[in-house]
Amino acid sequence: MTPLLTYVLRLADDNLIVAQRLGELIASMPDLEEDIAVANIGLDHLGQARNFYHYASELDPDGRDEDQFAMERSEREFLNATLVEQPNGDFAQTQVRQFLLDAYQVPLYGAMTASADERLAAIAAKAVKEARYHLERSSAWVVRLGDGTPESFERVSRAVDYLWPYAGDLFHADDVEVELAESGVAVDPATIRPTFNATVAAIFATANLTVPDEAYVRSGGRTGFHTEHLGHLLPEMQSLYRAHPGATW
């Protein structure tokens, strides 16, 4: 795979996998409003994933289409960061996972609108508006839970401690990203880390939460080394397609 195809698939996979996680929650959220919200946010991510897969299919020497990228690849071929595959857990864990992803995607897409690659710039210009709205929502929930009851504070604190090492994977750049960033195509995650850190610091301070130390990062997702959770997510997501390859509505 060319570096550009690899990069586009990483962007696509982050969005597809988190969309699948959010989809699992439909009809299971604590109230109707959250149910609608989780479905719509998932839909935004799925739409962003499709835009990236569509581009990937044009870059792919094997000519795989959107469905083949999503449904025919195995765990080792998915290039999402380990954060997005983490289970929904309780409500706090779902919101913290979303918040960490949103705090990353807003500056990511913001910077990508200036990419030398016009397709990436166009997809990002669309996606950044959606990501901002997601961040507004997930920030509000983190504050409400952290600044809420002892129970909600306890749960959101636990979620932060659990997810923090996986959030680090979002920033674990390899040569693919660094070299593409040098040619103005990709966003070097190191350049958006300060914005991410500032967002997290501001929201956590308001939420009475402590930003964990940078002790350990569970990296590897970008090169296909995942946690056990992706291996459980994929069979469910892909079962229909694999049973009826090429089926259409």
Binding site: V106, G110, V128, L135, E136, S139, A140, F196, I203
Partner: peptide, 13 residues
Amino acid sequence: PKGEVAVALTAGL
């Protein structure tokens, strides 16, 4: 309002 602090910081709205 709090909760929107991050949006102002990161995106500059």
